[in-house]
């Protein structure tokens, strides 16, 4: 199915809110999925799995600890922790690092980092445990060039995000135009998104403040 970028953002956002994720986080996850899609990466699978896990287990506690040169956390899940992961990286000087020994859905961390890189004008470097077959720069992957790491980003992993200083957007490749999503994924998101809608009733039909006939 072909969708617009705006539809993708809004549908993911609504799905997250429908599942009970806070609105501010939902907004960033929606935009993260668009950034990923424009780089040809599939964020929707991760979001759907993350929403399913969120429904089953809730957000889970995250134990942020100050460490030398940055912040560290034992375990973080991608839906609710990814925006904060980027926040902490943005509070650091260039070269500062935020680390997690294990993250669920690393794809969502990458998506959020792409969003915040664009928004805050800061580049990020990324390190994933066990990733060896992709181009690396001193062990750090440039956040804008991760499309070849898609498979690695689908499984739980250790993850570190480095504040790499001022961003250069001209070397971030983006696909413009229509985006393709799987029908099955779209339906799953739609089911979560539907929860934010209020069922129709005779009474609330009047809440629109207009009549039903305009033959004048």
């Amino acid at each position: 199915m072909i969708v617009s970028g705006n539809e993708l953002v809004v549908t993911v956002q609504k799905a997250c809110i429908g599942a009970g994720v806070s609105r501010g986080v939902a907004e960033e996850i929606g935009r993260a999925c668009l950034e990923l899609a424009r780089m040809g990466m599939d964020g929707l699978s991760s979001v759907i799995s993350a929403l399913d896990a969120f429904q089953a287990d809730g957000p889970g506690a995250v134990d942020w600890r100050k460490a030398e040169g940055g912040w560290t956390v034992h375990r973080a899940e991608g839906l609710c922790s990814a925006p904060s992961f980027c926040d902490f990286a943005l509070t650091l000087d260039k070269g500062g690092v935020v680390k997690a020994e294990e993250v669920d859905f690393p794809m969502l961390f990458v998506g959020c980092a792409l969003v915040r890189s664009r928004e805050n004008g800061v580049d990020f470097g990324l390190k994933l445990n066990g990733v060896t077959n992709i181009e690396q720069d001193g062990g750090w992957l440039a956040i804008g060039h991760l499309s070849s790491a898609t498979d690695s980003l689908k499984t739980n992993s250790g993850l570190a995000l480095m504040n790499a200083g001022k961003a250069r957007f001209d070397d971030v490749s983006q696909r413009a135009g229509d985006l393709t999503v799987e029908d099955r994924q779209w339906k799953r998101l739609g089911a979560y998104a539907k929860r934010i809608l209020v069922p129709a009733s005779k009474t609330n039909r009047a809440d629109a403040g207009a009549g039903l006939n305009d033959n004048d």
Binding site: R23, G24, D87
Partner: peptide, 18 residues
């Protein structure tokens, strides 16, 4: 303290802080 710390502990405030 920083806003990052506030939002990590209280993600429900993320949209309004933004």
């Amino acid at each position: 303290g920083s806003v990052a710390w506030l939002l990590a502990a209280h993600p429900q405030h993320r949209a309004i802080v933004r």
